[in-house]
Amino acid sequence: MTSFSKKHIFYITILTIIWVFVYKYLTPITNFIIDDIFGLESGKHLTETLRFFIYEVPKVFLLLVLIIFIVGIIRSYFSPEKTRKALKGRSLFSGNIMAALLGMVTPFCSCSAIPLFLGFIEAGIPIGITFSFLIAAPMINEVAIVLLIGLFGWKITLIYVVTGLFVAVLSGWLIGVFKLEKYVADWVFQVKSNNQENSVLKVKFEERIKAGYTTVKEIVGKIWIYIIIGIAVGAGAHGYVPEDYLSTLMSKANWYSVPIAILIGVPLYSNAAGIIPIISVLIEKGVSLGTALAFMMSVIGLSLPEIIILKKVLKMQLIAIFVGIVALGIIIVGYVLNFIY
């Protein structure tokens, strides 16, 4: 693997310079395209829709490539096996916090939720701690973080991450306190694996860089279309829907706006890529922050397909409790944020 050499460092440097340049001058470049090349009249619906679209798409993609590249490198240090080892024998609460934090960084895909669940239970990790992991992993993911930073800024991203962790820790902790093991499908506890230790090879740093590159290709390849559609819908609403249009229905003055947002959000299934550009416009049009974030969490964190997957290993009672508790956590987050902001 001597090919990772000066040539690669040269490419990475060039790409970084281009990245910084485009990101920094995106506003003037967008305005130049809209006002000078197309010669569109400022302030018109169509002009502002196009301006939003032409500005947001490259911005989100620039952030996406950068952050997912870094996330790919970070993830190469983690694996479900290592996470399981770290969580073994942890007590309730501190174990829940750790599980939620590890849920953010451990490579995870919802199609692996079942083997992961079984692997954790089989290792003797309590279901409460396992749930903290399973709630945090899809809810706080790199795509959500990129889009939040791009469309909302650092502060809201941080609020989302912290409150998302809160929901994961609280829900898992409650499930643990109530000792709900009896509602796990019976065969789960009979699963025995011969637990081969996967031989862990020492990974060179250049391999990790490659992992970052592969992750970018994989994730961006999968979600780019959702992002473009999401931003296009957002751009349309940005240009055409009147300011404060939604403020009467969904503002914090209405106490029921949070539960309504969650009721709409749970059956809706979208990934972070599609929903966040739309959320950003909801906020612009008068939906309060707590309500909007509660909506977003219920769309990404609680979804029908995931519930159907979990049905294989959980009895109906536990699924109902799981959905109820997570929804409760999201409601708390929604009200608290609406109260503060």
């Binding site: 479900p80 199609c111 692996s112 079942i114 083997p115 992961l116 079984l118 065969w187 699963v191």
Partner: peptide, 13 residues
């Protein structure tokens, strides 16, 4: 089959 998969101790498919 998920049970067979688990026999190999695999958590990430």
């Amino acid at each position: 089959d998920i049970q067979k998969i688990m026999e190999y101790g695999v958590m990430f498919t």
